[in-house]
Amino acid sequence: MSYPLFFVLAALSIISAAGVVLTRHPVRSAMCLVVTLFLLAVVFVFLDADFVAALQVVVYAGAILVVFLFVIMLLNLERDEPETHSQRRTFTGLTVTCLLALALLYLLRQSGTVLPGPGMNTAVPPGFGSIEAVGLRLFTHYLLQFEITGLLMLAGVIGAVVLAKRKVS
């Protein structure tokens, strides 16, 4: 991926991510996150991760965020009132965030420019990132984790139904 394209995608995703956090209306927040996820899927395609990009759109943007949108609409959430929180809390939150950002960027700087592995400039083996490659790895090396994830999803489904069900009294 060329530098201008990367910077355009990065700028757009940062703007929409900021939109998630700064918008007052929850529906606009959720739609900004959809845009961010879609842009990240585009970045994934450029990183030779076709299957993961398709999965991101189908599962994350197409299912999880639809559930978010359902809940926002069913709860009939309006624009958030201007927050009456204390200025001290805002200041604390912003300070913590800035410290975190600085710490992470410092770590990034210190990590050096030589990372292990073939690198971004080397071509990947053909079929890298395709569904066959991911599936093969998933069902051979990560089979146990896959099955446990299945159990986790079952627990999630049962939990969601039990919690959201209206108690018949």
Binding site: F51, A61, G62, V66, L69, F70, M73, S130
Partner: peptide, 25 residues
């Protein structure tokens, strides 16, 4: 000629849900 052809179709079908839910809301 995508190598994830049919998954792309499923992805677009998933995105179409937003038009309905936003249109109604």
């Amino acid at each position: 000629p995508l190598n994830i052809g049919i998954l792309f179709v499923l992805a677009m079908v998933s995105l179409g849900v937003y038009g309905v839910v936003l249109g109604g809301w």
